[in-house]
Design a protein around this nucleic acid. Structure first.
Lengths: 246, 246
DNA sequence: TACACAGTGTGTATGACGCACACAGTGCTG
DNA sequence: CAGCACTGTGTGCGTCATACACACTGTGTA
């Protein structure tokens, strides 16, 4: 009996960390975890996460549904592994000369880029404090970017939460607006309907924004991603700066 | 033939705005939309959104599954309406003397409070730019709080996005940590396992945080909600302040 | 007053889906 | 060569959302 490897890590996490010695006995495996994950990601990329079913993944690989369960304990498991794989980012080498603002911008871009590449990751419900390798790589990178900031560790984690949540939110908004551009539903049509229902009396402060098409309004192309999206980021960075130079 | 009421609003949204004249002909209705929504919310409150099925809701009301579809076109529809109902907040009367920082804090608290009261709203996938009444009430309130800030409308929306995404993220983190405290899974046990897998070489900047139990570490009770959670908010507010007083 | 018909709640049926489980075959290990 | 850990497979179960046909109800109109 060997050492109990890791004390009770959830299965997907253990797998993602590569903590699974391949079995010695029995027939050679025809599938592989990576092949399954890649196939699943391909489906999600092409048709979204709603189209992803176990049987769909299996048949796209030419195997039966149940064969997948030799590699993955549940669909949820698979989703975690997909997310871990899709969110993988390349961490640039440490540049000592780079300031923390620029470093965090670069980091933020990478995050948003990953969401753009695999938008369905936005549809995976967040499950607890992240413990997957990719997530921790991202955290490590963020901590590196903040290495010289005079913040205590708890505060850095707060900043991390701030940035990741904003990255996710902007990516989601961007996706929704893009979809609204294509899709008739939720498009200009229903936006117009809003004006009939949002009265100036009931929504005195919101009303002008809707009237002028600033809120949910007009052409989604008006949204200058690269500038609008970064406004919030710069505000966060300003906030950090003003705090640290108190 | 009467005027086509509102041009093509999604069904749930139209319902939520009360744009559905009750039918004149036919038998008296035994159910009501509100009763259905309330019953569904009760189930979600008690057992989470995973336990929520149409048949579950129906039988809790003493009706058949299909009867619900006379009031709601789909489960998704119902989820939107539940969220709209659960997120309802009481907007305090306008206090002219209140500064924008305090106003936004109050607003933020209300948001987080709603998430605390009905944590399952965190599990409802966000669908497009919010157009439900409650969401717009919240937006209106935020705009009121920012009424004197020298920001253009687009910037205010950016700030709104910043704040709502952070509120959601903190509420989610808080919930996850609370669960980790109760649940054995993801508890101290697997946190300990992290230390074995996160090496100092591979994660030089993250490693100390895990070693010292700052990240995902130690007692979840260490998380001082009321202070830690507000750190990020104060940074956002700082960022706005520093920007407006450029 | 009678009736057409919009609208009600119901029962049955369908097609996905996740996954448990038993099975027959496979190839390492003693 | 025997045992057995492990493979991919097939069947089957329970759950779920929802389509549809049905019998009934009450209101507006002929």
């Amino acid at each position: 009996m060997t050492e109990p490897v890791e004390p009770k890590l959830p299965h997907a996490i253990a797998l993602a960390w590569g903590l699974a010695e391949p079995p010695q006995r029995g027939p050679k495996r025809e599938l592989s975890l990576d092949a399954i994950i890649d196939a699943a990601i391909a489906i999600a990329d092409a048709e979204g996460i709603g189209a992803l079913s176990m049987s769909r993944v299996a048949s796209s690989l030419g195997f039966t549904t149940m064969s997948l369960y030799r590699y993955v304990t549940s669909k949820d498991d698979l989703l975690q592994l997909m997310q871990n794989s899709a969110a993988r980012v390349v961490v640039p080498p440490l540049d000592e000369a780079q300031g923390w603002r620029e470093a965090l911008r670069e980091w933020f871009d990478a995050l948003v880029g990953a969401y753009r590449k695999h938008p369905w990751t936005l549809d995976i419900p967040v499950s607890g404090v992240p413990m997957m390798p990719t997530a921790l790589v991202i955290v490590d990178w963020a901590m590196r970017a903040m290495r010289d900031l005079p913040l205590d560790p708890g505060e850095k984690i707060e900043v991390l939460l701030l940035l990741t949540s904003y990255a996710r939110a902007t990516a989601q908004l961007e996706r929704d607006l893009t979809r609204a551009g294509e899709n008739a539903t939720m498009g200009a049509e229903s936006t117009a309907a809003l004006t009939e229902v949002v009265s100036e009396e009931a929504f005195p402060y919101l009303f002008p924004l809707i009237r002028d098409g600033v809120y949910a309004g007009g052409d989604p192309a008006d949204f200058e991603y690269e500038t609008d999206m970064l406004f919030g980021l710069e505000r966060i960075l300003d906030g950090i700066e003003s705090y640290t130079s108190r």
